[in-house]
């Protein structure tokens, strides 16, 4: 289990590294300034920013794999995000809320106190948990 986890992470990193090469590979011999560096922090060396983003992609990818997302999907998701987005996400991924909606059932199953509080706050229009409460 541990080993296959390590294998997955390594594989992910290698694939990301390969895609990174296609990003920085010069178009026609000389070096093009890629669009994505246009919005990177001006004071910081643009290429260092991109390397940091690559590492962030690996972190985010590993976290997504732990969330049960397939390797193929992880790559597609991570590569759809810009360098800035992926660096922000790498810092936040453990605290970001996952929009879920377990349905009313999970809340009804909570202890009666919470049920009553939420019912009360629903009636006040502060929360919106129970569909049968008209807001």
């Amino acid at each position: 289990m541990q080993l296959s986890n390590l294998f997955h992470k390594t594989a992910l990193f290698l694939v990301l590294l390969m895609s990174f090469h296609t990003i920085v590979a010069p178009l026609a011999g000389a070096a093009l300034i890629e669009t994505e560096t246009l919005v990177s922090t001006q004071e910081v060396d643009a290429s260092r920013d991109r390397l940091a983003a690559l590492l962030a992609r690996e972190d985010v990818g590993a976290a997504l794999q732990e969330h049960g997302v397939s390797t193929q999907e992880v790559l597609l998701r991570v590569n759809s995000l810009t360098d800035q987005e992926v660096m922000r996400l790498a810092q936040q991924i453990d605290v970001l809320p996952a929009g879920a909606d377990g349905g009313v059932g999970s809340v009804v199953g909570a202890i009666l106190f919470i049920f009553l509080v939420l019912l009360f706050t629903d009636l006040l229009g502060l929360t919106d948990v129970y569909p049968f409460v008209r807001k």
Partner: peptide, 21 residues
């Protein structure tokens, strides 16, 4: 499969962004 994170039983905001793109 593009948006949902099974272990979280939910979807992260960046996944919605990525799927849209």
């Amino acid at each position: 499969p593009e948006i949902y994170s099974p272990a979280l039983r939910g979807s992260l905001q960046p996944a919605l962004i990525a799927a849209g793109r």
